[in-house]
């Protein structure tokens, strides 16, 4: 069984929000729901040594999932390939998953929880998520971490890969490299 992860190169991201827009348009998201914002940290430092970083955020598809553990209805689920998703027909809108997610990756709309699914229908069809396809800077890579030949395995192997809020032991499936 593959273990799908995303690798995001912060050094390549220019904060253009193309991924944000592509996700919203292709997934036909409600106006109030954003699956993958790109947040900007900075400017920091003193001229001429100033610095600004852009951090694309999304559901981290954690291997140790606080959201799935919190769900009282089993609507929040994790597939064997690591993708976390919500069966909205089973969701009661208790917001337990929203409150338990350290990354703010879930939203409530129309009484149920919404979240990034790594575009699982596309992944099942052998394609990549819309945000990965759209990124003109090639800052996002997606694939099977267990396949040594995959781009994501090689990137993580070569550059390490950091987790956001790794101290919380959520073991995200999204790695950040510089």
């Amino acid at each position: 069984m593959p273990q799908y992860v995303m690798v995001i190169d912060r050094g390549k991201c220019v904060g253009c929000q193309s991924c944000t827009v592509a996700c919203r348009v292709h997934n036909d998201l409600p106006v109030s729901v954003i699956y993958n914002p790109v947040v900007t940290n900075g400017v920091t430092g003193l001229f001429p040594h100033v610095h600004m970083t852009h951090v694309p955020l999304l559901c981290m598809h954690c291997r140790n999932t606080p959201c799935v553990d919190a769900c009282p209805t089993k609507a929040s689920q994790q597939r064997e390939d690591g993708i976390v998703w919500v069966d909205q027909d089973m969701c009661v809108g208790c917001k337990a998953c929203i409150m338990s997610c350290p990354y703010g990756a879930r939203s409530s709309h129309d009484g149920v929880a919404w979240k990034c699914t790594f575009c699982k229908e596309r992944v099942d069809a052998g394609e990549k998520p819309y945000c990965v396809n759209t990124c003109h800077q090639k800052a996002r890579s997606f694939g099977d971490l267990d396949d040594p030949a995959s781009e994501v395995a090689q990137l993580v192997g070569a550059k390490g890969g950091q987790w956001l809020l790794g101290e919380l032991n959520t073991q995200p499936g999204v790695y950040y490299i510089n």
Binding site: C71, P72, T73, G93, V112
Partner: peptide, 23 residues
């Protein structure tokens, strides 16, 4: 408080969740 109050019975269905235990 639920977004879908008519589905409230589902809160009783996941024995692993603490909300279910509380309910």
């Amino acid at each position: 408080e639920l977004g879908k109050p008519l589905r409230a019975w589902r809160v009783f269905t996941n024995p692993k969740a603490i909300l279910t235990f509380g309910a």
